[in-house]
């Protein structure tokens, strides 16, 4: 199915998903076919393929999501500045219209591919596949995928990345995880950003934000940081280092939560 590189993949749930479905019974003029596959079967197939690309080239791929303006690009810039000599970093930028974010990243001397999605409010695995073939994966350790700014739509699409990072800036309100449970339940790391502004805000409680994340049965780390203060970035850099190692030690690393639900991933336990 991959025209660019011709490699083959086995999606994790292939054993559950018969492409043509199973015939369960026939009555006059109609046939009932049992399918039991994800509504995003095709996307998930492509995502598994992307993940195989990243794994084969020993690259950690991270999906950054947030509202517009929460500081995704600014955090990437600070991270690149600080870690450029330790890791070889590449960036895939998703945006509705402009090339601006990719230009901001390239100014730091790292490769960036811009995907302009036009109407689409999220990245999907096919867009990321096209973009990753524009990067020289052999020369990279980490690929950051900056998703379209939106706390709803990106949560449903597996891109083939290894972990989900959700940013919540302190100017947005500490109850965002309760308002956007699908996205925050699926986060492997939550970053409370723009912490330099906390002193000017009296209504953002980082502890409350964390409690809202826990109420989604999510044990992911919740870190508070500012892209403008390098001294706040240590725990984030440590998490990154641990993830680079985790990926090297596990060939099947995926985000903890899969967007199409447990039913398709609950193997052998019925």
């Amino acid at each position: 199915m991959c025209e660019t590189c011709g490699c083959t993949i086995t999606p994790g749930n292939a054993h559950l998903v018969a492409d043509q479905g199973r015939l369960s019974h026939t009555k006059d003029g109609t046939k009932s076919i049992e399918v039991l596959s994800s509504l995003l079967h095709e996307n998930n197939h492509m995502a598994a393929h992307n993940r195989e690309h990243f794994n084969r080239h020993n690259v950690l791929a991270l999906n950054l999501m947030s509202s517009p303006g929460s500081g995704k690009t600014a955090l990437l810039e600070s991270t690149i500045k600080a870690l450029k000599s330790r890791y070889r970093i590449g960036v895939i930028e998703g945006d509705l219209e402009t090339e601006n974010d990719a230009m901001r990243i390239r100014a730091h001397g790292v490769p960036a591919v811009q995907i302009t999605t036009g109407q689409a409010c999220h990245l999907d695995a096919h867009m990321v596949h096209d973009a990753l073939h524009e990067l020289d994966l052999d020369s990279l350790d980490i690929v950051f995928i900056e998703n379209v700014g939106n706390l709803v739509c990106p949560a449903s699409f597996d891109l083939g990345h290894h972990a989900n990072i959700t940013l919540l800036s302190v100017t947005e309100g500490d109850d965002k995880p309760a308002k956007y449970p699908v996205m925050f339940r699926g986060s492997d790391l939550v970053l409370l950003t723009k912490s330099d502004l906390l002193e000017f805000l009296d209504d953002f409680d980082t502890q409350k934000a964390e409690t809202h994340v826990r109420n989604l049965a999510n044990s992911a780390p919740v870190l508070t940081l500012s892209a403008r203060r390098e001294d706040t970035l240590g725990p984030w850099f440590n998490w990154l280092g641990e993830m680079v190692e985790a990926r090297q030690n596990a060939q099947n690393l995926t985000p903890t939560i899969q967007p199409d639900g447990i039913a398709l991933h609950r193997v052998g336990s019925s």
């Binding site: 479905g21 046939k31 009932s32 076919i33 399918v35 967007p259 639900g261 039913a263």
Partner: peptide, 9 residues
């Protein structure tokens, strides 16, 4: 869940 369960053709 977001599952295609079955089709009646």
């Amino acid at each position: 869940e977001m599952i295609l369960k079955s089709l009646i053709l």
